[in-house]
Computed example of a mutant assay.
Amino acid sequence: MQTEMAAENHSSVTEFILAGLTERPQIHLPLFLLFLVIYVVTVLGNLGMITLTGLSSHLHTPMYYFLSNLSFIDLCQSTVITPRMLVNFVTEKNIISYPECITQLYFFLLFIIAEGYMLAAMAYDRYAAICSPLLYNSIMSHQACFSLIWGVYMMGLVCAFSHTGCMLRVHFCKLDVINHYFCDLLPLLKLSCSSTYVNELLVLCFGALNIFAPILTILSSYIFIISSILHIRSLEGRSKAFSTCSSHISVVATLYGSAAFMYLQPSSVSSMDQGKVSSVFYTIVVPMLNPLIYSLRNKDVNVALKKMLERIFL
């Protein structure tokens, strides 16, 4: 009887209502304009980085190969989240269908997980460039780069498929308001009227793996990088080596700090409203900042950009 009722409840939920970022309607318009500008900058910045890397022959190196893939991931990640969020600010009741919600969840997980592993791959690339410069071309061969990129996307695909597959087994009651601005794992699980033990176990295991595995790779790489930099006698050489890593470190700190705040707190401690604020950083702000950080702090990118602009306007 209970199973029949659960199945009936599950079948009756064909759509959800997204609560949005804030319940104060007076600030919806300013927030709409703010996030619209952020999205436009994100799209232009990441498309620009992909185009620049593709058209500038001297940027055809492993470092920029990874960077262009990071831009692709950021562009997709922002497009999965931001347009739906903008709708939230201009509609009275933001309804999302069950299939749309599950699809958004899948692609969000795919790209956010892939981004973490892409940053780890980029850290390994910097380790090879600074710690083994003579062997760099053989370590980061075309085959090695392709394998790393393939591994990055496979981790995203496998984890996203596992989470989404388990979510399809969850029965939802008639309480259909998702306390978030997009379909995320934890807010969806809070609406369940069936057991979510397997889902929560998966969140904990994959969350730990997808945060700590890339972070340990990044930390290990930078321990060796810093050690190598300290052995460089030239002050100019040290400065150049640090400058190639500083932008990467700032992106890593923002992404993992906000993600860990959202997913690694006990449910008794975490607040979904605090979670919304932290998730804004890794879903919307980080995809905008990445191309800006890497372009403003990278001489090669600035030179390539100037040459491209000269070709276009002169």
Results as ranks from 00 to 15, higher is better:
A120I: 00
V277Q: 10
K276Y: 02
L175F: 12
A19V: 05
A120R: 00
T42I: 09
L86T: 06
Y127R: 11
I73S: 04
M122H: 10
Y181K: 00
C145P: 01
T91V: 14
V280D: 00
M140Y: 04
D273R: 12
N9L: 09
S270K: 15
L109G: 03
S56P: 03
I102E: 02
T14Y: 05
G54Y: 12
L31E: 01
L109Y: 07
N179H: 10
I293R: 12
G237Y: 02
P99G: 11
D273I: 07
A121L: 05
Q2A: 15
F224L: 05
A7F: 04
N46G: 08
Y222I: 01
S56R: 09
L314P: 01
L230T: 10
E4C: 07
T283Y: 00
Y222N: 01
S258G: 06
P83G: 10
H10K: 14
C131S: 04
A121R: 04
L175A: 13
I102D: 01
L67R: 03
Q274C: 11
L86M: 08
S295C: 11
V43G: 04
I229Q: 01
S141C: 07
I81C: 00
Y39T: 04
S221A: 15
D300S: 13
L191P: 03
I73K: 03
L110S: 11
N9I: 01
G48R: 06
T254P: 03
T164E: 02
K307E: 06
G207A: 10
P83Q: 13
A7T: 07
D300F: 08
V37A: 15
F242M: 07
C159S: 14
S57P: 03
L29K: 11
Y181G: 00
V170G: 08
R169A: 14
S220M: 14
K240S: 13
L209A: 14
I50M: 14
L289R: 01
S246W: 12
Q104L: 08
C205D: 04
R311P: 02
S194G: 13
M155E: 13
T51P: 01
I73V: 14
L36Y: 02
I112N: 09
L47N: 06
L216M: 08
P291Y: 07
I225Y: 01
Q77N: 14
S278M: 15
W150D: 13
T42M: 05
S11L: 09
H163F: 15
